[in-house]
Amino acid sequence: MVEAGTHEKGDAWVLIEPSERREVIVKSKLERLYGNAIRETIESMTSNIKAKIVVEDYGALDWVLRARVESALRKYRGEQQ
């Protein structure tokens, strides 16, 4: 299990843990404004990973979100090797 990011405003927190089936859980303070955009970003970056992915968004700009997801992904791949 790996985590990246923080629970600060303007940031996002990402958790990835190994799982039999792929599962993506997104919680966002801006669900109504950017829920779809956030899911698209996560999907495009993690679609090849079979794991449980939890993202809590606190109003992160898209590239902040991407950085947090990428950070979590690299940690995750490192642990899997």
Binding site: L30, Y34, G35, A37, L61
Partner: peptide, 10 residues
């Protein structure tokens, strides 16, 4: 450009 276009209020 910075934020992306937000969805319309539902």
């Amino acid at each position: 450009r910075i934020c992306g276009k937000p969805e319309e209020p539902k």
